[in-house]
Design a protein around this nucleic acid. Sequence first.
DNA 1: AACATTACCGTAAACGTTTACAGTTACAAT
DNA 2: ATTGTAACTGTAAACGTTTACGGTAATGTT
Lengths: 341, 341
Amino acid sequence: MATIKDIARLSGYSIGTVSRVINHHPDVSEKARKAIEAVIASENYKPNSNAVQLKNTGYSPVTVVVKGSRNVFFESILEDMQKVFRENGEEVSVAFLDEDANEVEAAIQLCVQRRPKGLIFLGGNLNYFEESFGKIEVPAVLVTVDAEEMPFENLSSVTTDDTKGARDAIEYLVSQGHERIGIIGGSLDTDLGQISDFRLSGALEVFNRQKMNFDLDRDFEPSKFSLESGYEAARRLLKKAPDITAIFAIGDMIALGAIRGIVDSGKKVPDDISVMGYDGIEYTRYAVPRIATVRQDIHELAVRSVEDLLWRLSYHRVAQHFIIDHEIIPGESVKNIREEK
Amino acid sequence: MATIKDIARLSGYSIGTVSRVINHHPDVSEKARKAIEAVIASENYKPNSNAVQLKNTGYSPVTVVVKGSRNVFFESILEDMQKVFRENGEEVSVAFLDEDANEVEAAIQLCVQRRPKGLIFLGGNLNYFEESFGKIEVPAVLVTVDAEEMPFENLSSVTTDDTKGARDAIEYLVSQGHERIGIIGGSLDTDLGQISDFRLSGALEVFNRQKMNFDLDRDFEPSKFSLESGYEAARRLLKKAPDITAIFAIGDMIALGAIRGIVDSGKKVPDDISVMGYDGIEYTRYAVPRIATVRQDIHELAVRSVEDLLWRLSYHRVAQHFIIDHEIIPGESVKNIREEK
DNA sequence: AACATTACCGTAAACGTTTACAGTTACAAT
DNA sequence: ATTGTAACTGTAAACGTTTACGGTAATGTT
């Protein structure tokens, strides 16, 4: 593997000049640049990034911290992010965490060890951020949870308005004539801090506002963002609240699991029970029945967050908070039962 | 951020001794070890991995090259792999590639730039390996495609027997009374080199052996490993070959897309058309109908490949080729039509 | 002709590690 | 007391870069 020394030797210039060519510094003659570039090309030379990072800043590439098993949702985000990083000549590394890990503590560990120059959190719990994000010094972006209220100068966020999205979802179900609606997802034993909490609270808002018949103990089942969890929750929910006509699952994976749970309970979707999801993963458009959902612009989520981070890295811009639009996608999984009555 | 120098200063020992403690070298007194470990703990010190890698070998962590958008299948593999790496104190980075990228050329680029100490290919095309893998010097593992026939000393492979899996799948369909079977997936214009080719050829074997009525032009549709592609292919296939009673989709994502395509063509699964998938992704167990598939032990695939690489890295073991078992999983998506006749 | 300026280039230190080597002790054996 | 040995520890070079600094040659200015 060629090093900068080889390039220097082969081109007849010093490593200093070679380095200047690589980094597009001005003080290089046209002649030298041409010659050195030729050697670089012919040797297929690329700077060793360990050395570059060690020298430059002591910092490694940006790390994306992926939390939770909402992977089917995140997987395409990751690809999009990679693409943007690559376009800007940046590398990325990825760290996967359990859904119930403390992502901030994990990131702190990661920082002392690898000194990433930036962090992107894919999913996260605001409570953990509140507790310990102060220890993190590098620029970071929290994706999918709004950090506007957090007092951190180095933390941007890119999210959709989950509370509103959930409100919209419930309102959509109501507009289709549903009055007894069950909810699957999230849990009640944490403070408001994660995506699931916001969605849940958005839904509850509508119930309260419209004075609808909704009892948390009866009409709600906690669930993780997984098929299995959605399946189990749906079965339990149907036992507890047999009169509901619709279920709002706060994630598409939950919705998919729930549909199977409903079927296994001997009911039909959407004839007996309508199901509404959240996230807008690709499969909702191919499922039988197609699943009504709250679609987030995943691509936009990815691009915004990476671009924000890169800008802040390069130009020391200040952290910002973006809200990406969402959109209610009707689907066969929700039946309009208004006219029936 | 503390460096080894700080630890040396704070503990009163030299950086040499500190380094020896970190790396568990023998020549250190119990007293020094205790003292230094105490300082390391109190400072929350971790060696800067750029420096370590630069010094040690010039090599960065193992990189996983993920090819193609069979992500729903790969996503859980990635997590499992990360886990094993982490258990062994190793880092990983991930590179995502398009389904039609040349993963070997991409890896070569990656090698000159980042000098990973090892590579794991998640998916790949043997033809590319044949052409250019010779240029890669680090130990590598090819996951999901058998590289037994390749003449490379530094390339292990961990796969299931895709040809046999496809044979088993077709035989299963036949055992359920299907005689006119269509196939979706892969393409015919490449040499035998990728997973899809092997599955396709396995299926064709059975047709030939059993002298079944199968015409490539009529009963086969190429497809990528994606929902959309599977959807389109199914629609085209049903037009061309309206008399088939079953479809073998060479990937579960394709199968899921195909089912929607079948439904949109006005037919029912499995009453009119049975569908069999391949891969065994989690969702096949929750879909309505549950999808019959060829299940691969994804966890085993992940663990084997990482462990093989780590062993070879540590003990200079020779490359090996593992075949992981597969298993036919019956499902509601395949109807037994034998008794009908 | 003398000097200043410009344009370019090389040198060497530094980033945070690891490790071969050399050095220092302490202690046992003579 | 001297020497040998074992057990430990410090020193310094090296990994592949970047960059401040200083140097040189060419050109411009007086």
